[in-house]
Amino acid sequence: MILAVDVGNTNLVFALVDGGKIKARWRIATDPRRTADEYSVWLHQLFELEGFSRDDVDGVIIGTVVPRALHNLKVLSEKYFRKTPLVAGQGDAAWPMALEVDEPHNVGADRALNVIAAHARHDGDLCVIDFGTATTFDLVTPTGAYAGGIIAPGINLSLDALVSAAAKLPRIAIEAPATDSVIGRTTESQMIIGIYWGYVAMIEGLAARMKMEIGRPLKVVATGGLATLFDKHTDAFDAIEPDLTIQGLSLLYDHAMRSPK
């Protein structure tokens, strides 16, 4: 069993993965200042609640888009799990696929991991949409290469910016509107409509433009916590894979273990 660590800009996810199957997962707010000792105390309690121990972990792999968080996670792995961690995109865990972009060194680990997992689970040209701090659209070729994409503000980021810049607007929960009408009768309903249907329009519009540009059938794979929320009101998604990044970490770990040293 491996411990896969996915460090995003907003949240950090620890997952125990055995044979490609996620046995347990835990989420915590990303904080680069959090020490290895703090992680250990928190994880120890969660392991026990789920019936696992540190001895069950055979290896550790870390994928991060927050470089400052990496040091303490390496210390956690080495001090408390007695394992030298693999770091996604580095050393033995270098990316196994082509990065067909102008700045391959700037491709986020989460996006590369999503590409690995999406290609392993689906054939043909793919568009992977990840609803995270940013909303990203990633183009995957039939050979599994990453061929570029789109970065848009995440829905929570957009909502925070709107509320902070407009003094009279209330903070609202992100949810589907109560009706299909796009004409709100209250300030809150108008905000929900703008955020929700605005994102649906962006999703459908950008996916359609990507399909038109490549000129071939394109399967759209959605991941991230908000994918299921939007799936209720759009036909843009062909598949939803909620754990794509963790699956990518597991696949990358297996690839690294099989590769000759």
Score class of each variant (00 low, 15 high):
2 I>P: 03
3 L>M: 11
4 A>G: 13
9 N>G: 04
11 N>Y: 10
11 N>F: 08
13 V>T: 10
14 F>G: 03
15 A>S: 09
15 A>Q: 07
21 K>C: 08
26 W>G: 11
26 W>K: 07
29 A>G: 15
34 R>K: 08
36 A>W: 08
37 D>G: 00
38 E>C: 04
42 W>D: 14
45 Q>N: 13
48 E>G: 07
53 S>H: 08
57 V>C: 00
59 G>N: 00
60 V>Q: 10
61 I>Y: 04
61 I>A: 03
62 I>R: 06
63 G>W: 13
64 T>S: 15
66 V>G: 02
66 V>Y: 08
67 P>S: 04
69 A>W: 00
69 A>H: 09
70 L>V: 00
71 H>F: 08
73 L>V: 01
81 F>G: 10
84 T>F: 07
85 P>V: 01
87 V>L: 15
88 A>L: 09
89 G>R: 05
89 G>A: 10
91 G>V: 00
91 G>H: 12
96 P>N: 00
96 P>C: 06
97 M>T: 01
100 E>T: 01
105 H>I: 13
112 A>V: 05
112 A>K: 09
115 V>G: 00
116 I>F: 05
117 A>Y: 09
117 A>R: 10
117 A>D: 15
118 A>K: 08
119 H>A: 13
123 D>Y: 04
124 G>T: 14
124 G>S: 10
127 C>G: 06
130 D>Y: 04
130 D>E: 15
136 T>F: 02
137 F>D: 11
137 F>E: 11
139 L>A: 02
140 V>R: 09
142 P>I: 10
143 T>E: 15
143 T>G: 07
143 T>F: 10
144 G>E: 11
145 A>L: 09
146 Y>G: 00
146 Y>A: 02
147 A>W: 01
147 A>F: 01
148 G>W: 02
149 G>H: 14
152 A>T: 13
152 A>R: 04
154 G>K: 11
158 S>F: 05
158 S>C: 12
158 S>H: 03
158 S>M: 12
159 L>R: 07
160 D>H: 14
162 L>R: 02
165 A>R: 11
166 A>H: 14
167 A>H: 12
169 L>G: 01
171 R>C: 07
174 I>E: 04
176 A>P: 03
176 A>M: 06
177 P>F: 01
178 A>I: 11
180 D>M: 15
182 V>C: 12
189 S>F: 00
192 I>E: 14
195 I>T: 06
196 Y>T: 04
200 V>E: 07
203 I>F: 15
206 L>W: 10
208 A>I: 04
209 R>V: 03
209 R>Q: 11
210 M>T: 10
217 P>M: 09
217 P>D: 06
219 K>C: 08
220 V>T: 09
222 A>F: 07
224 G>M: 08
225 G>F: 11
226 L>H: 09
228 T>S: 15
228 T>P: 01
230 F>P: 14
231 D>C: 06
232 K>F: 07
233 H>C: 14
235 D>L: 11
239 A>E: 02
242 P>M: 10
244 L>Y: 13
248 G>Q: 05
250 S>I: 00
250 S>Q: 01
251 L>R: 11
255 H>P: 03
258 R>G: 05
259 S>P: 08
261 K>T: 03
